[in-house]
Amino acid sequence: MDAVVAALTDGASLLDKFTPKPCGGDLPFFRADHGRSDCAPAAEVWREHRTGELRVTGVDCTHDDMTLPSAPGVSTTEHDHP
């Protein structure tokens, strides 16, 4: 148990020292629209993390259903990187 606590403590200290650089290129963002709360973060929070265009696509499902193969309108083949 001591090793687990030490690993978590070390990992948490790294978060304070790490500043990610923006990703190059466009960012496809799939937003779950069904059951979306008014206080849910907007896709625009990702703008500072990329250099290209932010392409937002609303999907008619809940956030939890986004990973299901049946999620409507989500096609990974359209957005695969070369």
Rank of each mutant, 00 (worst) to 15 (best):
A40L: 01
C23Q: 13
R31G: 00
P20C: 04
C23P: 00
H63V: 11
A43R: 04
H81S: 12
C23D: 11
T51I: 05
E78P: 01
R36L: 09
E44H: 03
P28N: 13
F18Y: 14
D65E: 11
V59M: 03
C61T: 14
D80F: 05
V4G: 02
A42Y: 07
D2K: 08
A40F: 01
C61V: 11
G35V: 06
T77H: 11
W46M: 12
M1T: 07
W46Y: 15
V59Y: 02
P41G: 05
P69Y: 03
D80M: 06
G24H: 05
T19P: 02
V56W: 00
V5S: 12
A6S: 07
T67G: 15
G35W: 08
D16E: 15
C39K: 09
E53G: 02
C23V: 15
D65V: 01
P20Y: 02
S13M: 14
D64P: 03
L68H: 10
T57I: 08
V45R: 02
A12K: 07
S75Q: 11
M66C: 12
D16W: 13
V74G: 01
F29P: 00
G73Y: 01
A42G: 13
T67E: 09
G52M: 11
E44M: 01
V5I: 15
F18M: 11
A43E: 07
P41V: 08
A71Y: 02
L14S: 06
G35K: 10
A40N: 07
S13F: 12
V74F: 04
D2T: 09
D65I: 00
V74P: 01
H79S: 03
T77L: 13
D26Y: 01
C61H: 07
P72F: 05
H79M: 02
G35N: 09
P20L: 03
R47Q: 13
V59L: 05
T62L: 12
H79P: 00
D10A: 15
R50W: 03
G58E: 14
G25W: 01
G25H: 06
S70E: 11
V74S: 03
G24K: 10
D2I: 04
C39P: 00
P72S: 08
G73K: 04
L27W: 02
V4D: 05
M1G: 10
H79Q: 03
D60V: 13
L8Y: 11
R50P: 00
T19D: 11
